[in-house]
Every structure is written in structure tokens, then in C-alpha cells.
Computed example of a mutant assay.
Amino acid sequence: MARENGLQKSLFALLAEAHPEAIVTLQYQYRMNKDIMTISNTLIYDNKLKCASKSVAQRQLDLPHFQQALDSIHGGASCTKQSCWIEQILDPSRKVVFLDTDKMSATEERIMETVVNKAEASIVLQLAEALLLAGVPEERLAVISVYRSQLRLISQSLRGRPGVEIATIDKYQGRDKECVLVSLVRSNETGKTGELLRDWRRINVAFTRAKSKIIIIGSSTTLSTTALFGIFLELMRTNNWIYQLHLGAENEHTIQPPPSPREKRNREHKTHSPAEAILKNRPILRDVYNSSSL
């Protein structure tokens, strides 16, 4: 509808086209480390973007409880620590990771007019919980996707983590987090990516919200059918930033997220016996009850 009425361009874009002499190109940025900045530099800024300082360029995700998190997620897990994909992905030295789902059973699903990818949602849940267990505060972690239906699916899994921000790319303009997980969703035999993944201003926003680490999840085969994602994937290969997930990876860890605040209240309420409710705030009656129980 907006496109039909001539609103496909923002007011800022129209002003920039009308008065190019008034535009000053951003050169120094204070948000992203060098690896994350390289994505935007390659796709959008023609390598003109620079880190404002050495500390910004070398920024790295702090995981103070990394080993404890690994011990926790491997209780009853079918994978071993020696070959654990979560351990390799969480490695703080890996600041940009593209998780390729091509070898998994991770085909998108259509529900009415919406598109979801349950395998990607499972991967996001496991990574999010592992990051939180490793010491990333909830308020410093975000999950982003172009599809609201995918975010609703992920929100259900992470309902016990109210501090984790789960939002569309459009809502994340101008904001940032230490670590960002991006679910691209589209994975099909015909290579259809949809209109949303062709909007590179929108995709650039998604890829530049992270300060220390970004994990992008998607199908390289499907995404490579678009020209700019082809460039993106080549950048990932050149820098050895692609991690190929194997078949069944989403089922190797049995990670149980904490209950939501409402679920927690309900569980606590159910643990109280009728006697506890009667004896509450009645110390004399409680003494009599305890004496009769001896």
C-alpha cells in the first residue's frame, strides 16, 4: 500500500536525493567491533566506515561463566563437549558467525499467510539460554527477525526470560545490544527469499545492532539466490565465519528455559497445602497443629 502511494522512500532519502551536497558521510562509529563493522562496510559503506578507537575495534563478548554454562547444557545431552557446536559458536573470539542450516532439516513452514522456521527457533532458544547461563545479562541480548510470526514462536520459548528483547528489525532502528541473534527464516527448495529479505536498508539495520557478537541463522542455498546475500555469504566464507550445522543439531541439547513469572507464581501457589492457607498468620493455631503432628 505504501509503495503504491509513493511512500516507498523515507523523507530523509528524498531530501538526500534533492540536496546531495548537504549529506555528510559517517566515517567513525562507536558501536560495533571491527568484524561486525566489516559486514556493513562490505554491503553498504564501500569500506569507508572506521572504528572510532582500538577498544571499539577489539570489543569482545564477556562470558564469565562459560565453562559452567557448558557443564549445565550437557547434563543428559547427546553431544559431547569435544564436538559441541554450541561451545564452538559461543567462543568469544568468534565475533561474527553465520550458522548455515542447509544440512539440517530446517525447511520453513507456512501457517496461513505467515512463515516460520521451527528448527531456527530451536537453535535460537538453545543459543540464547547458553549465552545467558554463560553470564550475558538478559538486557544485553536481543533476538531479531524480519518475520513477526517467527518472533512470536521464539517468544513462546523464551517467555521465562522477560529481559531478552525480541523484536522486528524495524523496531530496532537506532538501538543496540552486546549480542544479537538474527533468524532469517527462509529455507526452501525454490530459493524464494521474499520481499523483506531484499530490503538491504532493513537488513543492514539487523546486521549492525550488535556491539560484541552477532550470530546469523539461515540457509545459504536459499539466501544465495539474491545478489547482495551472495556478496554477504562470500564475505562469510572469505573470513571463515560460516559454521555448518549438522543434521539433528537442534535436538542435541535438552535445555529447559525457566518458567515465566506467571507460571512461577502458579507453581508456588500449588505447593501450598490447604492447612498452610488456614494456618497463615495464626501462630497459636500453628503451634497446636505442629504439636499434634509430632
Rank of each mutant, 00 (worst) to 15 (best):
M1Q: 08
L7W: 11
Q8A: 11
E21D: 15
A22L: 14
I23N: 13
Y30E: 14
R31E: 06
N33W: 08
M37N: 13
T38H: 13
Y45H: 09
Y45K: 00
D46L: 05
A52E: 08
K54T: 10
S55H: 10
Q60K: 12
D62C: 13
H65T: 08
H65G: 07
H65M: 09
F66M: 12
F66P: 02
I73A: 02
I73G: 04
G76V: 09
C79A: 15
Q82L: 07
Q82I: 03
C84R: 02
E87S: 00
D91L: 01
R94T: 13
K95Y: 11
V97Q: 00
M104D: 02
E108T: 02
E109P: 00
E113Y: 07
K118G: 01
A119W: 01
E120K: 01
A121Y: 02
S122R: 06
A128M: 10
E129A: 05
A134P: 05
A134S: 14
R140W: 04
S145W: 03
S155K: 09
L158V: 02
R159A: 03
P162K: 12
G163W: 05
G163S: 07
V164K: 02
I166F: 05
A167G: 11
Y172I: 02
G174S: 11
V180E: 04
R186V: 07
S187R: 07
G191I: 03
R201I: 08
R202C: 07
N204Y: 08
A210R: 00
T221H: 10
T222F: 01
L223K: 04
N239Y: 06
I242R: 09
Y243C: 10
L245G: 00
L247V: 03
E252K: 06
R262H: 07
H269I: 12
K270W: 09
T271Y: 05
T271F: 13
S273M: 13
I278A: 12
R282D: 02
P283G: 04
V288Q: 13
S292C: 14
